[in-house]
Design a binder for these strands. Sequence first.
DNA 1: CTGACTGCAAACGTTTTGCACGGTA
DNA 2: TACCGTGCAAAACGTTTGCAGTCAG
Lengths: 136, 136
Amino acid sequence: MKDFTTLLRTHNLKATPQRLIILENIYNDGHINIDNLFDKVKQTFNSISLATIYKNINAMIDNSILTEVKLPNTKSVYEIIKQKHYHLLCNNCQSITDIEIDTSSIINDISSRYHFQVDKSDLVLSGICQKCLLDN
Amino acid sequence: MKDFTTLLRTHNLKATPQRLIILENIYNDGHINIDNLFDKVKQTFNSISLATIYKNINAMIDNSILTEVKLPNTKSVYEIIKQKHYHLLCNNCQSITDIEIDTSSIINDISSRYHFQVDKSDLVLSGICQKCLLDN
DNA sequence: CTGACTGCAAACGTTTTGCACGGTA
DNA sequence: TACCGTGCAAAACGTTTGCAGTCAG
């Protein structure tokens, strides 16, 4: 469990109970889409409105607490901003796994070949995860 | 200019004038979002409806003629399916460039480290393109 | 000739907004 | 206490659908 109160305040947002529960749920899940987040948050805060979820997701993205991860063939998920990493997406169970890869050689290659200044990289590898491979 | 009539027919779709113009516009642009596509197509086929654009984009995706490219911080674009490649996205001029990178070592590494069967990879490098770097 | 396609309008699901009330700092 | 945040309902937005007419093969 992290100190989400401090996280919010250092990013110029008030630490309301709704925001704390939203962050706890995103943190526990790792990556979560709006619908699942709303369902989960309602379990501990059943009066919360969907508009509040949206407003807070957007506020936290604007204030660099969260980031949106766009995925092929499925809804975007949101995650707390952390160190640079990439994603595995299982097309069978829909699980998302953070992975670390050294992409510096690729990025350097592209920078020089295309004279493109790379500020951000997004990589999603889709396929079948270990668990689903074993289950079938 | 390619033979889009054959492309459509070999994918079990009728070669209507609307579809040919849609494909020509996507081909010429390389990658285009729905709004820009609608604007462009209207220039040569002003009676076309937005519903027809949507229906055809979806039909062509379902029949493996087109693919959707999801991009960070901006709308998805559509492109004609071609050989495997990745994308550069300029955050200044919004241009999208196809790039070729050998990602096999990364994918092999991930397959063995995570026991994940990789079927597809999506990589977007965002930043500033050469033209915009020179202009500023 | 027949099934597939088009264009319109209506419907739909998702996200945003306005506003009065409530809570954080 | 001042301002930010919440919750509700309504609005806006993007996309899909139903249907009658049309066209490609």
